[in-house]
């Protein structure tokens, strides 16, 4: 166990250093969600005048989405880093050491985890500075940080799974629009009960991303909504298990070490 912890620590250290040494991957992941938050808050402010809209501040409504958008960057970053390790043969070098597959994946996610924490703090801070308020209070803000951190790590695990399966950084980048589409086809811009088009409401209802956004959103708009939080945390745990578990299994078969 001690050896395992040491392996995760040294691989995590490398992953964090890599992340910090690539400002080109940090800056957009902080900046783009904030830009989209700003333009959507401005452009869709009128939506708060619709009957039944849950708040009169579109900023409060849209803030939850920034965390999700940050998580998409986590998926792409972690996937691209891992795929690059496979493409360059660095993974083979690691595979020749006594390192365990689980340690490799956990270590790889450490850099993303640090970035995720940074993102969550920045997004929440920016939202509060722009006038948003969290109905669930300080402890609610803490839960937002935890939930959004878990969402980023879970998405990063899914990115790692795709990277191990495809072994191609280009394939990961190519999947970016698809992941982005999953975000847009959710309740990100409109509460599900106010979505006019039936087909879109169905898609948003079966899209797990809706529950992640609504979990965070509930803390901002409503306070403590146990059902929304349970769904949010439930979905994130499923993605965590599928993503990280799948990545570990896929890595085992890719490395084919005996």
């Amino acid at each position: 166990m001690r050896e395992f912890v040491r392996q995760v620590a040294v691989l995590g250290r490398r992953s964090i250093m890599r992340t910090l040494r690539q400002p080109a991957s940090i800056v957009p992941s902080l900046l783009f969600p904030l830009i989209l938050l700003a333009v959507n808050t401005g452009g869709l402010r009128g939506a708060t005048n619709l009957e039944g809209f849950p708040t009169d501040s579109f900023l409060d409504f849209a803030l939850g989405f920034a965390f999700l958008q940050g998580a998409v960057f986590a998926t792409v970053n972690s996937g691209t880093d891992l795929a690059r390790d496979i493409q360059t043969g660095f993974m083979n070098r690691l595979a020749l050491t006594p390192v365990r597959g689980v340690a490799l994946i956990f270590g790889q996610l450490a850099g993303v985890a640090v970035l995720a924490l940074l993102q969550a703090v920045v997004f929440l801070g920016a939202g509060l500075a722009a006038g948003a308020s969290v109905r669930a209070g300080v402890s609610g803000a803490l839960v937002i940080l935890i939930l959004s951190f878990l969402v980023s790590v879970a998405f990063a695990g899914a990115g790692a799974l795709l990277a191990v399966r495809t072994g191609s950084g280009e394939a990961i980048q190519g999947l970016f629009p698809l992941v982005f589409a999953t975000l847009f086809l959710s309740s990100m811009n409109m509460p599900r009960n106010l979505i006019d088009a039936d087909w879109f409401r169905v898609i948003a209802t079966i899209n797990p991303v809706s529950y992640l956004i609504e979990g965070i959103r509930s803390l901002i708009l409503e306070g403590w909504n146990v059902e929304a939080l349970a769904l949010g945390f439930g979905v994130v745990f499923v993605i965590l298990v599928v993503g990280i578990g799948g990545a570990v299994l896929a890595l085992r078969s890719r490395l084919a070490r005996v």
Binding site: V10, L11, R13, D85, G89
Partner: peptide, 24 residues
């Protein structure tokens, strides 16, 4: 192996640290 498999973002000393730790 073919093509020196190194991480361009790490230094030689950091590579050493990683490799020696993973080898226990």
């Amino acid at each position: 192996l073919q093509e020196a498999a190194l991480d361009p973002l790490l230094s030689a000393r950091e590579h050493m640290r990683l490799q020696t730790t993973l080898h226990g």
